[in-house]
Amino acid sequence: MGEPRFLSPLLESRRVWHGRAQPAPADGIPSGWPTLDQALPQGGWPAHALSEILLPADGVGELQLVLPALGRLATRERPVLVVAPPYLPGVAGWSARGVDMRHVLVVGAVGSEILWAMEQGLRSAACGAVLGWPGEADDRALRRLQVAADTGRTPAFLFRDRRHAAQASPAALRIELETRPQPQWRVRKCRGGQPPAQAFALSRAGA
């Protein structure tokens, strides 16, 4: 072991990896859920990247997770694009959570057209956010979406079945809903930080 003073030239020469020297910039989009914001390194949803939301079934609270953020993202100039939703968005339900439905564009598409429409929406930079239910999507397709979200500087939310959790994904954030022992969200992957070890629950107010 050398003397401690030999350490500083080594560090200054930048040949030694430091781990994470600086905290990730807090440029996330506030999700409206304090527990979720705390768990994410950017302090919210990744602003120009793909977020993957993994679910056991439809109707378990996936919209309630994103609707507070959508309420802020949907504007007249940049509406929110909802591509191939599994059901009709309920106007009363969305409005009650603060989303102005005049600024939500629903796009009906099937098969590979879903990914195409999402990519167009992301790349155009004309949308506040793009939500999509693509069903099957391989690693290459997800990477294209991630690149499109980055070039268009638009947040993307991808809703998929929980069985895709094992598949590798280029998404900046992967968050999964666990049903046992009780419903709670677990961050599987988050760019810019270690996923928190603890799962957390959202208070289901208003349902």
Partner: peptide, 10 residues
């Protein structure tokens, strides 16, 4: 950004 498209064109 580049490739940006007006909303109407999208």
């Amino acid at each position: 950004p580049e490739h940006a498209l007006p909303l109407a064109q999208l």
